[in-house]
Computed example of a mutant assay.
Amino acid sequence: MKKNTVLAFDVYGTLIDTQGVLAALAQVMGDAAPAFSKQWREKQLEYSFRRGLMRDYVDFSVCTRNALDYACLALKQPLEESTRQELMAVYKTLPAFPDALAGLKAAKEAGITCYAFSNGSASAVEGLLQHAGILDYFTGVISVESLQTFKPNPDVYQYLLNTAETKADNAWLISSNPFDVLGALNHGMKTAWVKRSDEAIFDPWGEEPTVVISNLTELVSSVDSHLI
């Protein structure tokens, strides 16, 4: 492993399981919870894309809350304000995926510099990673809030490279989100797509991730095999 390799980990959906909100949703709406969670997450991302294109930045938590309100309307779940606030609070304590700790430990043992790289605010991400017990594995948290835009704006990936004091050839974006992987590829970075489900589809844009892994325990060996 080259010692100057930098790994930038997406947080929501890659290290942290956004479906960790399902238990709380199930207590509120029973069998409707999976569909509601899916709608909530999809709209959260859509709102961040739209805000970025409109150059109308808000904290990612605002996108999350707006998406929650949309899901309530779309799926006819008239939740009380107190319940909505409780669900938003759950987002601050979402669990890490089971393989996250082992994958980060392997990277640290290999001497790789790791950053958390997120659409979320630095304070929110730090709190989330601290709660999940994995914050100490990162050299730092790099948030889009400094630029007031969202992934996959190319400026965000350049900001990552500048902050990490590295070049695209030495930097890897690790993400389960295809839009994020494509954004990093577009900026010349290497990428690892974390395909956690056989049903996951990578956007057919004529570009492919540098490596595809099913969980983070495969990351170090996969990255190492692609270094010259």
Rank of each mutant, 00 (worst) to 15 (best):
A26K: 11
A26L: 00
Q27I: 00
M29S: 00
A32Q: 12
A32S: 08
A32Y: 00
A33Q: 03
A33T: 12
P34F: 01
S37Q: 11
S37E: 05
K38F: 04
K38W: 01
K38A: 10
Q39R: 13
W40A: 04
W40F: 05
R41I: 09
K43H: 12
K43D: 15
K43N: 14
K43C: 12
L45M: 11
S48G: 09
F49P: 05
F49A: 05
F49C: 06
R50I: 13
R51T: 05
R51P: 10
R55G: 01
V58N: 13
D59F: 03
S61D: 12
S61G: 10
C63T: 11
C63H: 04
C63K: 03
R65A: 14
N66D: 15
L68H: 10
D69T: 08
Y70H: 14
A71T: 14
A71Q: 06
A71Y: 05
L73M: 11
A74T: 14
A74G: 03
L75Q: 10
P78H: 00
L79Q: 05
L79A: 10
E80R: 11
S82A: 15
S82W: 03
T83I: 08
R84Y: 12
R84M: 15
Q85S: 09
E86M: 10
E86I: 04
L87Q: 04
A89T: 14
Y91L: 11
Y91M: 13
Y91I: 02
T93D: 00
T93E: 01
F97K: 01
F97L: 08
P98Y: 07
A100Q: 06
A100I: 12
L101A: 15
L101V: 15
L101D: 14
A102W: 06
G103Q: 09
K105R: 11
A106H: 11
A107T: 13
A107L: 14
A107M: 09
A107P: 07
K108Y: 07
K108D: 15
A110K: 14
I112N: 02
I112F: 06
T113G: 07
C114I: 10
Y115A: 09
Y115H: 10
A116G: 12
A116S: 13
